[in-house]
Amino acid sequence: MNGLIEIGDKVVLYGFFDGFAHKTDGTTNGLVTLKTGERVEIPLEDIMKKDQIITKKDIISRMKQLFPLSRNEWINEILHEFGDEFGLWKYNAGYEQGKLEGEWVGQQLKDADKIRQELNKPIVPQFVADWIEYCKGEGLTLLGSLDPIDKFGNSLANSFKNDVKVCISWASRNSDVFARAWLDGYEVEKEKRYLVKVKGHIHENILVYGYGVKRYFFSSSLEGNKRAKHTRKELEDAGFGWVFDCPGIEIEEVEE
């Protein structure tokens, strides 16, 4: 069974006509032997010769044998007779199929857009990423992040750890990148680190940050609780931005 047949549907049984069965009420049924060997009684009016049953294949085969003009007349007449019903069925079927395909295509486009956004996230410096997260955490909008002042003229970024003016300046100069980073997410730029040395000096010639004393100073040794590789921002925040323009200082870009 194909799953479409239901109880009460009319069916066709194929077999061999095997005689008559005369009933006591005066009626006569036909005896039909099925392929399984069973013999069943069927009213004579319900029995047809096999060559009397017209199938879809029979109709198509016969129409193919017609001359093109006659075949077109048949097709036009059939469509005239059943066109409205057939058209409505085709429309409904097409509409439902279109909805399914439209939903599938729509989901594919959404997935593709999501993948595109993930693969093409803008790259921003760490201090910009910190600023975006701070503003969102404070409930500021994208526009508000460029001018974090309340109606009384008070700053809404007093607790931000970095220089707010530097962040806003970067966001203003790179407005498209900043907006995309705010809306779609971002990747943090891998900051370069530098080794800062005093030219011509052997002792106390390397700029380090002492974790214990929590300050920068020049040292001849990298041993101990010190950091010798600094980002430009770390140096600028500590007041050592001048080293990048000083002729007596050697700046070497180093790996992490």
Score class of each variant (00 low, 15 high):
29 N>C: 09
38 E>M: 05
21 A>C: 13
30 G>F: 01
25 D>E: 13
11 V>P: 00
29 N>D: 15
15 G>T: 08
24 T>Q: 14
51 D>W: 08
38 E>I: 10
51 D>I: 12
59 I>H: 02
48 M>A: 14
40 V>K: 04
24 T>M: 10
14 Y>R: 10
18 D>K: 12
53 I>A: 15
57 K>W: 08
10 K>V: 00
42 I>R: 01
54 I>P: 02
9 D>W: 00
47 I>K: 04
14 Y>Q: 12
15 G>C: 06
8 G>W: 01
34 L>I: 10
39 R>D: 08
30 G>N: 03
33 T>W: 01
54 I>S: 03
30 G>C: 07
48 M>P: 00
31 L>Q: 06
13 L>R: 05
34 L>V: 11
31 L>I: 11
24 T>P: 06
15 G>E: 03
43 P>R: 08
51 D>N: 13
55 T>A: 04
49 K>I: 09
57 K>G: 15
13 L>I: 13
27 T>N: 10
16 F>H: 11
55 T>D: 03
58 D>Q: 12
33 T>Y: 01
44 L>P: 02
40 V>P: 00
12 V>R: 07
47 I>Q: 01
47 I>V: 15
56 K>N: 13
13 L>C: 07
46 D>M: 09
11 V>E: 06
10 K>I: 00
52 Q>L: 07
26 G>L: 09
50 K>V: 14
53 I>Y: 11
57 K>C: 03
15 G>L: 03
16 F>P: 00
29 N>P: 08
10 K>H: 05
53 I>Q: 10
33 T>R: 12
54 I>V: 15
28 T>D: 05
19 G>N: 05
24 T>W: 06
37 G>P: 03
42 I>D: 01
25 D>R: 02
56 K>W: 09
25 D>P: 02
20 F>M: 15
26 G>W: 03
43 P>W: 04
8 G>M: 04
34 L>K: 06
17 F>S: 08
29 N>R: 09
37 G>V: 07
28 T>H: 05
8 G>A: 09
36 T>W: 02
58 D>Y: 06
34 L>G: 07
